[in-house]
Amino acid sequence: AGDAATASHVMLRLEDIFPDSSSSSCETPPQDHEHAASSSSSSSSSHTRMTVVHRHGPCSHLSTADTQHRKPPPSHEDILAADQNRVKSIQHRVAATTSRAGKQPSFPTTSSSVKLPASSGLALGTGNYVATVGIGTPATRQTVVVDTGSDTTWVQCRPCVASCYAQREALFDPARSSTYSNVSCAAAACSDLDVRGCSAGHCLYGVQYGDGSFSVGFFAMDTLSLSSYDSIKGFKFGCGESNDGLFGEASGLLGLGRGKTSLPMQAYAKYGGVFSHCLPARPTSTGYLNFGPTSPPPATQTTPMLTTNGPTFYYVGMTGIHVAGRLLPIPPSVFSSSSSGGGGGGTIVDSGTVITRLPPAAYAALRSAFVAAMAARGYRRAAAAAALLDTCYDFSGMGGVVAIPKVVLLFQGGAYLDVDASGIMYAVRPPSQVCLGFAANDGDGD
């Protein structure tokens, strides 16, 4: 009882943590964009704050527009299946980077007509959070997936030479923007692309993933509006003419990775290479995406970014896990035995992956400790597994009150992430099927 406060999250109202989003309204409607001068005295950079919302929640433009003929949001099984595809995609890319054996798609090089590869792609599963930007002059609203796991921003473009999936907002039309231009093949920016081609002097980009999903089109420049007051002129992005994958009805993707084409890198001089996000706990709430330095809250924990591990991804070093206030007996080598070798595998922080993946030995220790701690609180596993989530509980008849053990992730430098109650369990069918929201990699070397 003495350590109950540090060992458990007590949830007085189960529905507060696992709401039925289909019957809820947006509690904190997205605010107009905020903008302020930086408080940093040593920099002339500014900061801008955007609203981040759950893609399928009532705060999203993608769910509040005309729904009469729209498809219902994906089930949790669909989301988890897509998430597994994304993780395979990331593992594929990491392996390809390590072995330098990544396969590159081919592009036409001299044709005067654009002939883009078009094939059915599997789901990318680009996570669940979106933000709205403006592109072009005048700016047209585009709601895009927030993705720290990739670099190149892209939106679907008219005339969709090959194919576009159905999106909620109007397609971006370059012909209607007075500031749009294609990047030429000779431009240095074209060389920054991981996958590029050339057609009639126009630079082509390709974003292709290990699972087969993709966006291909013209690499272009136009004004990117992050707020009513702040824009980036000459922002380079993909004008997608051939796109497929499970992007929902989003208009594209905002690439926030570490590569040269990412938004943080393109706007480095403006925002100092600093951005932050907060993802809301509930589909009915809003979070933020902030660019530029701001004063961090006093309780901020920091850990080194392991920049030598490879491009694009944000690697950090995980060192251990606490469950219910107790450090799990996981050897440090478990977190550093991946195939990338050298300084260790590291752990990627990815806004586009839904469920945290752990090395098998770490997950086994977490699951064992979590199940034991739940049993000590009177909960028995009584619900079926849901896709990759194998530890599920039935909270029916609990009177809406449950207490779950705390889970804390530990990182190099002493940083820790005391996972919010909403992040420890994933509600597949609340309250009858609520699962531990972690999963294992397939192998120790993944």
């Binding site: 993802l279 709430s285 309780a299 924990q301 990627i348 922080v349 806004s351 992430l417 992040g423």
Partner: peptide
């Protein structure tokens, strides 16, 4: 590699500082 996904990041402010090569976590940011 392991991956910290968005379910576990909920409510945290996650700051990425490319210049300082640092990632930060701020509890209760939203």
């Amino acid at each position: 590699v392991g991956i910290v996904g968005n379910t576990q990041l909920k409510t945290f402010g996650v700051v990425y500082d490319l210049g300082k090569s640092m990632v930060g976590f701020s509890p209760g940011a939203c």
